[in-house]
Amino acid sequence: MGIKSIGSHLQVKGVGKRFGNVEVLKRLDLEIKPGEFIAIVGRSGCGKSTLLRLLAGLDVPTEGEVLLDGERVNGIHPDTRILFQDARLLPWKRVIDNVQIGARNGDKARAEEALRLVGLEHKAKEWPSVLSGGQRQRIALARALAGSPRLLLLDEPLSALDALTRIEMQELIEQIWWEQQFSAILVTHDVSEAVALADRIVLIQNGAIAIDIPVPLPRPRERNSDFAYYEKLILDHLMERGAPASVSAVSS
């Protein structure tokens, strides 16, 4: 496999972000080990997407710093790729050319390989406008993978897809992440998606980390009773429903 990379080590140190008088993120500390998959969960407006934009270098923190393998993130890093909520394919480029945008130095062979990874090599010559929503998002994933990222940031990438396509995509992302060993950060409000994919789930409330829970379930993940337990655990925290009681009940 030519597209292979080892994940980045990411450290978030006392990062805060303020838009005018509104404090969106409050002195956040977070560490992602190389190759780890973490999910950042929170209600809309909690600041999770802002955090992801800071990690991507698309925005600058008001205070604190983000370190990538010990180096301060200062703008967009060539080893970091983002999968946006909407596929954001360029309508004026055919599928393969869209993927090629992600490949370093426009390497066509690498683009083709990435397209094979997501199973859409037969769509190479199509225009994005004829693809379904799920296919577009897979092309966007291929574009991100073509750059052999060491850190993949996923900004609610599956929220616009139907339930079945979403589960398919989750399995695809898990499998590719497993093979490629990049570090991954998924921002989502879908708790079951977070449990399906993440080694660790970080819950953000009002711009601060509320809890940080490891999810030691075996991979590939099955939607069994353990899965349901973690789902409920996170959901209870998210809804502030007095989680501790249910934790002890299920884990015993």
Binding site: A56, L58, I76, P78, T80, R81, I82, F84, D86, R88, L90, W92, K93, I101, G102, R143, G147
Partner: peptide
């Protein structure tokens, strides 16, 4: 702007950004 972000994330700047993003989009 969301498409331009795609360009920035993939390291497109200056003339390459104009050629691959601005001009086709303005066509």
């Amino acid at each position: 702007r969301r498409l331009l972000e795609v360009g920035w994330v993939h390291g497109y700047q200056g003339w390459r950004l104009i050629r691959h993003f601005f001009l086709p989009s303005a066509l």
